[in-house]
Amino acid sequence: MINYLLCCDWGTSSFRLRLIDGATYELLEEVTGQQGIATVFDAWKNTGEKNGVSKEQFFREHLKRQIEGLAGKAAQSLDQIPVTVSGMASSSIGMEEIPYATLPFAMDGSRASVRHFEADETFPHELLLISGVQSQEDVMRGEETQLIGLAALLDQEGQRPSDAIFIFPGTHSKHMYVRGGQLLNFETYMTGEVFKLMATHSILKDSVDLRSLSDFSAGNLAAFRAGVQEADSALLNRLFTVRTNQLFKKINKQQNAFYLSGLLIGAELKPLRAKENWQLVLCSGTNLFPFYQQAITDLKLVDRTTFIPAEVIDQAAVVGQVILFQNQHSNVSVYRNESD
């Protein structure tokens, strides 16, 4: 059993590094920032590559600086503490691209695809780089690690349903189909990204006001619920009603932002009504939770939905990383570098 672990969630646009007690999963200290994979990759292309620095070395140096910053906050040396990294760091624009795991994907992490790096003088940390999962037509990186951790946490409480669709809202929402301890399939919905594009870069940008998306006043809530109900297969047509709502002064711009959100979330969730034999598990953080909870209620899906608290979702990624690190010397498929 490891004593401490550095758990890094490195997304396209964000970075989070946490010092974790490996036995209790307790968060001891953390650093966060906007130095996501895309930003670091661009910096390497602009400076590192031109100066002969390899992509792997450039990412390691950035990660090392973040670890040193975390050590300062924790007031202790973090040398020799292992690091696990999930998210986009294993992609083509990350530290090193490694193969995706394939379906079916075991919920205990035993079929995860990872790359192992030994500690050395320049980077005094054993490092485990976690890849994502692919189906025949979809991919994900990071959510599968959260799913592994969440399954373990629910098992501890005896609350994990045997057949369930786990819903992870976000920029690219994931619906993950789990049966018999295995992830069988998953679907990606570009709900969050389409909302941002429509609200900031399309003709609809002048019809919405995004400054009060946390204000669930009666008018805003009514607009959101109307959007959920009106979402259907003619989504491309319904999106233009955001424009006419404003032109005809049916609702104000703030309410219209809620209406747009309702259209997109409704379009994502409505197909679940036909999947009556599946339980639903909503795995949402604090920002999106009220939107998805309201949509699930209005679509009459609430009776077969389990709502996971935001703090459990936050812990799930860490638990998944700890499990994968502990598995690496047993039955995880590990891709080692040639010097190992």
Rank of each mutant, 00 (worst) to 15 (best):
M1E: 12
T12Q: 04
S13N: 13
F15R: 02
R18S: 07
I20M: 06
D21P: 10
D21I: 02
G22M: 05
L28H: 06
G36K: 02
K50N: 01
N51L: 13
S54K: 03
E56G: 07
K64R: 14
Q66G: 04
E68V: 10
A75I: 07
Q76H: 04
Q76I: 05
Q80F: 02
V83A: 01
A89T: 10
P99G: 07
M107D: 01
M107N: 03
V114N: 04
H116R: 15
E118R: 15
P124T: 08
P124D: 09
L128P: 01
G132H: 06
G142I: 07
G142K: 04
I148T: 09
G149D: 08
L150N: 02
L153T: 04
L153N: 10
F168Y: 11
G170N: 06
H172I: 03
L184I: 10
E187Y: 12
Y189C: 12
F195P: 00
F195K: 07
K196L: 11
A199G: 04
T200K: 13
H201T: 13
D206K: 08
S207V: 00
L210G: 06
S217V: 11
N220H: 09
V228G: 08
V228A: 09
E230S: 05
D232V: 02
D232E: 09
F240D: 09
V242P: 04
N245R: 12
Q246G: 13
F248R: 14
I251E: 07
N256P: 08
A257K: 07
A257I: 08
S261M: 06
A267Q: 12
G285M: 04
N287C: 01
P290T: 03
F291R: 05
T297G: 03
D298N: 13
V302T: 13
P309W: 01
V312Q: 13
A317P: 00
V318K: 01
N327Y: 10
N327T: 11
V332R: 03
V332E: 00
D340R: 14
